[in-house]
């Protein structure tokens, strides 16, 4: 009887001793995925920033101060080209992530490079558009509409710039360290960031450019 109790107690003690091992390991597994969840929450807060800028544009977007209107300024073929560049960059980033899963360094870097070039093309066209507008006298200080326009589209452009810098950084880190878990996590975060910027751009080309031109 006493022997039996002893065994039971020992077993209980053994399970208790194992418990910290289990919790410790679980914590490590949690830390990885919490980065992605945390980054997602950052993206959501970024979405709120853009929501405020969209609301500002929605309020001020028709206040031309006797200046040029969207239909006078925007060249839709250029915006269509810009949009397709960003769309292509989204699928090439997806292709890069598929190569990451297959552990193929060369093709991963190739698709990341293509993504970066598409992003750069988008930025160049946007800067050309801004330069063109300012040269025409339709700079951000011309009217409330143009202030809101430059703030919204410029903030998106700054995000794309940050994304390209991040992409170039990872293109150096990947060959240096290989497909380590840290690099994998960074690529996942950048992917979320990149696709998120594409989602914001859907709002921009619809709400700012297409509906602006519709208003005439």
């Amino acid at each position: 009887m006493t022997m039996h109790l002893d065994t039971a107690r020992r077993e209980a003690a053994a399970t208790e001793a194992e418990a910290p091992v289990f919790y410790d390991v679980e914590e490590a597994a949690h830390a990885e995925s919490s980065t992605l969840l945390g980054f997602w929450i950052y993206l959501m807060s970024d979405a709120l920033i853009f929501a405020v800028l969209f609301a500002t544009f929605g309020v001020l977007g028709t206040r031309y101060a006797a200046g040029p209107s969207p239909a006078d300024l925007f060249e839709l073929p250029l915006i269509a080209l810009n949009t397709s560049l960003l769309l292509f960059s989204s699928i090439t980033y997806g292709l890069a992530m598929l190569e990451v899963e297959k552990r193929r360094m060369g093709l991963t870097l190739f698709w990341l490079g293509v993504t970066g070039l598409f992003g750069l093309g988008f930025l160049v066209i946007e800067l050309y558009e801004f330069y063109h507008l300012i040269a025409e006298g339709a700079g951000p200080q011309r009217s409330a509409f143009l202030s809101a326009f430059f703030t919204l589209v410029g903030t998106h452009g700054l995000h794309v710039t940050a994304g390209i810098l991040w992409l170039v950084t990872l293109m150096f880190q990947l060959p240096l360290h290989g497909f380590i878990p840290e690099n994998h996590r960074r690529l996942m975060c950048l992917g979320m960031f990149w696709h998120f910027l594409d989602v914001i751009w859907i709002g921009v080309f619809t709400f700012v450019y297409l509906m602006g031109v519709l208003r005439g």
């Binding site: 194992e18 289990f22 597994a29 949690h30 990885e32 992605l36 899963e101 878990p181 994998h184 996942m188």
Partner: peptide, 28 residues
């Protein structure tokens, strides 16, 4: 559960919590 935890700690932990993203848990 603790027996499972000894053999495949990451997976057991992930499954007991209901995560589905196994690719980013550090083990590839």
């Amino acid at each position: 559960m603790s027996v499972h935890a000894e053999h495949e700690p990451d997976r057991a932990a992930a499954h007991s919590r209901g995560y589905d993203g196994g690719g980013h848990d550090g083990g590839h």
